[in-house]
Amino acid sequence: MPDLRVRELSVEYGSGGEVIRPLDGFEMSAPPGSLVLLLGPSGSGKTTLLSCLAAIQSPSAGTIDFGDIAVSTLAGKERTAFRRHTVGIVFQAFNLVPSLTAAENVMAPLLAAGVGWAGASARAASLLERVSLGHRATHRPGELSGGQQQRVAIARALVHDPPLILADEPTAHLDHTQVEGVLGLLAGLMDGERVMVIATHDDRVLALGGQRVDLGRRTAR
């Protein structure tokens, strides 16, 4: 099963005449079925790392490998296909499409991948049941609480059963009770061989356990 390996990863870009280097020689590895918590203050490179892991951003140097896929060397349609089939992303701001129902939001990645409506609909219904929102399938995001929206977003990230889950500050916009529900859901995802990487500076997420990588100090514990 795929493991995640990051070697000598550097990302740099110019801004206002200065060179910004959010990641500089970063290294990390995660075996199949593991959880990695990326810790560190804002600006420490957590989101940049997630972008690189998702093949959205190209690193300036270094390599990322997921199983036998050399993620850092993917180009064009290979990157799109990698994201479509291998990665599930949970965003900080939920990023649900307001005009679509909860079920349609969950179905969207499958439909974009060419799966038929009936198949996508059945899969979405199953996942919404799994996140305890089967009864809200026809509601639009504006009719759901923040916690419910994030659970829909988690269902959407899982809809194509990806082996790599990336979550960016999944509890940032949730209140105390909502956080508990979402953490319980994330804990339930750590089964099988899936690798999950969560970027957070919320100490409550530490309760999930797993490998902690402090990007502020560039150390893995």
């Binding site: 994201r83 089939h85 499409v97």
Partner: peptide
């Protein structure tokens, strides 16, 4: 724009 970005992050082709 953000909606497009999300769909592209999920692997939706730009031409789609």
């Amino acid at each position: 724009s953000r909606e497009f970005a999300v769909f592209k992050a999920f692997g939706t082709d730009s031409w789609d």
